[in-house]
Amino acid sequence: METHANVYSNEDITVTYEPRLCIHAERCAKELSDVFRTSVIPWVKLDGAESERIINQIKKCPSKALKYCRNTKKQAS
């Protein structure tokens, strides 16, 4: 069975989604629907809100199916 990566990035953060962990509480979509959209693909649109708002919403995920990490900034040499 083919699986597709559920990885979404912007300049600041990378968000991952693990569907096997998700309990479909839909808290993400109800509270930040400009980013977490259940009716379109891709369902995560990181330019729908500021990265800090997205991080705060991910921290509320009851199943921990959504995770994030901060991207490291490349320094000019």
Rank of each mutant, 00 (worst) to 15 (best):
M1C: 05
E2M: 04
H4N: 11
A5H: 05
N6I: 01
Y8W: 08
E11K: 14
E11F: 01
E11I: 02
I13A: 01
V15Q: 05
V15M: 04
Y17F: 15
E18L: 07
P19A: 13
P19C: 11
P19L: 06
L21D: 15
C22Y: 10
I23K: 09
I23D: 11
H24G: 13
H24P: 10
E26S: 15
R27F: 10
R27T: 14
A29L: 11
K30Y: 11
E31A: 06
D34P: 01
D34H: 05
V35N: 08
V35L: 04
F36R: 04
R37W: 02
T38R: 12
V40P: 07
P42Y: 06
V44H: 04
G48A: 01
S51I: 00
S51K: 05
I54C: 01
N56A: 07
K59E: 07
K59M: 00
K59Q: 10
K60H: 02
C61K: 02
C61E: 11
P62E: 03
S63M: 09
S63V: 08
A65Q: 09
A65T: 13
A65H: 12
L66Q: 08
L66T: 12
K67P: 06
Y68N: 09
Y68H: 06
C69W: 03
R70C: 06
R70Y: 12
T72D: 12
T72V: 13
K74S: 13
K74N: 09
Q75W: 12
Q75V: 15
A76Y: 11
